Simulated assay, not measured.
Amino acid sequence: MNMEVDFGGLFLHNSTYDYDDYEGKVEPVGGAVFVSVLHSLALAVGLFGNGVLLCVLALKRRSWSLSDTFILHLSVADVLLLLTLPLLATQAAHQFEWCFGSFFCKFSGAVFNINFYCGILLLVCISLDRYLSIVHGIQLYSQKRCRLFHISCLLVWLISLILPIPDWTFLEISQDNEQGKTLCVHLYSRSVTDWQLVSRLLHLTLGFLLPTAAIIICCSFILLQLQRSSKVPKTQRAFTRVILPLVGVFFLCWTPYNITLTVDTIRGSTGNTEGSLQTALMVTKALGCVHACLRPVLYLGLCGNFRRRALAMLGCDTVQHDGSLWELCVGEEAPSDQSPDEVEEQKQMMGDDQQVQSTQC
């Protein structure tokens, strides 16, 4: 009897599989869950915080200052981005598969960049105004230059609407035959490298590097002036305590995305793209979206005037003070070592500053 067993070449095909190219095909399950949760939390906190902020502004609309108007523009830009977060959260929950059609694909991508451009350009305007006021004693935005203020805000929105044109043009839904998914991606009609480079260079230079340099320069001179001179009015010092954290949180949220985008642009131009880099773009993009819910939290923690108004509104109470939400931001009383004359002089300066930024503008 023949007891030999024929394995049919079972051990003949024992070559190992090369996993070097598998990284780009791994489903980013952990990243997808993290992005989905992050978008959901940002949506809940952002809608509540910005809703309270807009209600507080609406209740004091008869006494708006220019700084309050800046807050309004920033809040509107944040609310626009928050409206797209349900789409992005659903996309992440479906392993980054897009389910909402071509229009919402373009809309979500464009609004994401509109929020970024509007936020950083408005911070440039605020920083420049504070720099001229504190360092040179020049009021860039005042009652006499009200038209300049509105022109600046209009230009910020126009630039923010023009720069995302590549998103409206090239963002499309596409079928990924390899993964069997519908994706929302940029589809460049001509040379991918040329159009992608132009689009990203505009974003990184006009949208990030140049405004960042302007903000850093202005804030540096402001800090130097505040350190050198003790004659800077209390209101301007208090305002600086708000604007500097706003700038810091903005760059903390948006810098990782722009660094990742720069790396992806450099590697894409050389033909070296990685799946992990695309996942990093998704995660850092979600971190940028989180910024839309952080500004009201900063106002609540730093601005005593806004905190009092918000708590009074939620408690159906009234607040008599009509000052700016950013001025008197610390909500502190005069130190005990100040003389009555100094306290009266401080109140007079605060009144003069609010009169300069009156709502007749």
Rank of each mutant, 00 (worst) to 15 (best):
L171T: 00
L85Y: 04
G109H: 03
F116Y: 11
V192R: 12
L158M: 06
F103R: 00
S142F: 08
I162Q: 00
V156H: 00
Q175S: 11
A89M: 07
L183T: 08
I162H: 02
L187V: 15
Y131T: 01
V79F: 08
Y131V: 02
Q143W: 11
E178N: 07
V79T: 06
K181T: 14
F70S: 09
R190I: 09
N115C: 07
E97T: 14
S133H: 06
N113Y: 09
L187P: 02
A110C: 09
Y188M: 04
S152W: 09
N177F: 07
H94W: 10
F96Y: 14
V135W: 02
I151T: 11
P86F: 06
Y188K: 01
S108R: 03
S108E: 08
L83M: 13
S160P: 00
D167I: 00
G101R: 13
W98G: 07
L81C: 06
L66M: 15
S152I: 11
A89P: 03
L128K: 14
Q179G: 12
V76D: 02
I162E: 04
S191M: 15
N113Q: 13
G101I: 15
C184P: 02
Q196D: 13
G137P: 08
F170I: 07
S102W: 07
S65H: 13
L163Y: 01
A77T: 07
L72N: 01
S160H: 01
H186C: 06
F103N: 05
C125S: 15
L83G: 07
N113C: 07
Q143M: 12
S67F: 09
V79G: 03
H94T: 11
F70N: 06
C125W: 04
L128F: 13
F107C: 09
L80W: 11
R190T: 10
F96D: 03
L123F: 10
T84I: 14
S102M: 13
H73R: 03
V185W: 05
Y141G: 10
L187K: 13
K144Y: 12
L81E: 05
C118V: 03
L183H: 02
N177G: 11
I159C: 09
V124S: 01
T169E: 00
